[in-house]
Design a protein around this nucleic acid. Structure first.
Length: 154
DNA sequence: GCCAACGTTGGC
DNA sequence: GCCAACGTTGGC
């Protein structure tokens, strides 16, 4: 799951009550469908910082609540307001709730990801890939988990 | 700030 | 339903 740390970063998640937050604001159908169809409770996800000086995978979170309607689509003042949802009277977007589990120390930079041959096929690294929610293969997950120390968040 | 690569919109 | 114009993403 990508996020811009200036808006909502790993440290923000870690310092939330119970280290949990609703992942609101995803406004792309394909990304939404990944959350809706593929995100099971207890599943683990990588959190990635984008649009920052050192883009990197920064930690692992766990899905604590599967996809449910994202109400920010109905709030006119929200940056995630969606007129079509408002007109229909129901949000067409979903969010999942996640809980911070462990921090990569050091964070695994995009540069290092690109340098790892085993990750050549990883979705994130493909040309033109911009989705804020992306699938990852089990072997890619394992490879990445071994690229840095994992410090449990507590 | 540039710009490639998409995704979305809306006139027809 | 096509597709040009426009908007967004995100690394660099």
């Amino acid at each position: 799951m990508k996020t811009e740390p200036e808006t909502f970063g790993w440290q923000d998640l870690v310092t939330r009550p119970q280290r949990r937050e609703s992942w609101e604001g995803v406004r792309n159908y394909q990304a939404r469908n990944f959350m809706r169809d593929d995100f099971m409770e207890d599943q683990q996800v990588f959190i990635y910082h984008s649009s920052t000086a050192e883009p990197a995978i920064v930690g692992i979170a766990r899905v604590v609540k599967a996809a449910h309607p994202d109400p920010t689509a109905l709030i006119p003042d929200s940056p995630y307001f969606d007129p079509k949802s408002a007109k229909a009277g129901a949000s067409r977007w979903v969010m999942v709730d996640v809980e911070a589990l462990a921090t990569f120390e050091p964070a695994i930079t995009l540069k290092r990801l690109r340098e790892e041959p085993l990750l050549a096929g990883m979705a994130l690294l493909q040309r033109g890939q911009r989705l804020s929610i992306q699938p990852i293969q089990k072997d890619e997950w394992e490879t990445i988990c071994h690229m840095a120390r994992l410090i449990p968040v507590l």
